[in-house]
Design a protein around this nucleic acid. Structure first.
Length: 246
DNA sequence: AACGACTGCAACCGCCGTTCG
DNA sequence: GCGAACGGCGGTTGCAGTCGT
């Protein structure tokens, strides 16, 4: 399901992320935040490009993410928003707490698009995975819109209906109230038995821990050089040898 | 049991907009 | 005004797992 790991000519790793890489990235961002994606992999001791780290964090590691288990409300909201916005996945994802644009996009292409392909006045079943809260398979129906607007894409000519009690009756511009029905996620996550809150905006200045005495976990920790800035001295880690330690 | 087709989704790619020097 | 750097976005790809024969 994932790409095989490989290295490009610059020694940048591509492909599937290992558990260790995930832990390293997660630990680093939770501790220091992501001030600069391009520099982050160097500081975190990851042989990845910044974009890859950003994508991995945003789409998979963020503690406020939900995975799988699309609710009927979410399915309906995706359909409705796609009608309104088209392939603006990031905007659609904004209305779905805990979902990413990538996830919504994938879900659309793998589940919902085929429903629309079945064209007018047809029904399809959105089958759930085991444990999916989309219990008992939502039934969706698509009917041809009366709208004369011919400029929009073919998909926009369809109106989504569902077996849900709540539905497209949600008033215009009331998407916020709809999304509020979906449990608002928090930035809490757990590490072993201890719970701790995570602020994604944490910066070096705000980090309350000791940057020096609590080095980012890595083996073979050596330092390259020490720089000074407004908030005091900080380390430039030796990317190839490991991470921080003073 | 074996094998090919299909599916789902993580990850990559390339383009675009914004910011900053 | 210009170009480089960076972040964000949408489209596409690769491949493990699942399904059907």
């Amino acid at each position: 399901m994932v790409r095989a790991p490989s290295y490009d000519k610059n020694g940048i790793k591509k492909g599937a992320w290992s558990k260790e890489e995930d832990e390293r990235l997660r630990a680093y961002i939770q501790r220091y935040g992501h001030f600069n994606w391009r520099q982050l992999p160097k500081f975190a001791g990851l042989a990845r490009c910044g974009k890859s780290c950003r994508l991995r964090w945003l789409n998979y590691l963020r503690p406020d993410l939900k995975h799988g288990n699309y609710t009927q409300e979410e399915v309906e909201l995706i359909m409705k928003l796609h009608q309104q916005l088209g392939n603006k996945w990031s905007q659609i994802a904004e209305k779905l707490p805990g979902r990413t644009d990538n996830e919504v996009k994938n879900y659309w292409h793998s589940h919902l698009k085929k429903c629309l392909k079945s064209k007018e006045n047809t029904t399809c079943e959105l089958k759930s995975k085991p444990g999916n809260s989309l219990e008992g398979n939502a039934t969706c129906k698509f009917v041809r819109s009366e709208s004369p607007d011919a400029d929009v894409g073919d998909d926009f000519h369809n109106i989504f209906e569902s077996s849900l009690p709540m539905s497209t009756e949600t008033s215009e511009g009331d998407n916020d109230s709809l999304t509020s029905n979906v449990a608002q996620s928090t930035m809490n996550c757990s590490r072993g038995k201890e719970d701790f809150s995570v602020a994604p905006w944490v910066t070096f200045e705000e980090f309350s821990g000791d940057f020096w005495t609590e080095p980012f976990v890595a083996e073979n920790t050596y330092t390259d050089e020490i720089c000074s800035g407004e908030s005091g001295a900080f380390l430039i880690p030796n990317f190839y040898d490991g991470a921080y330690l003073l």
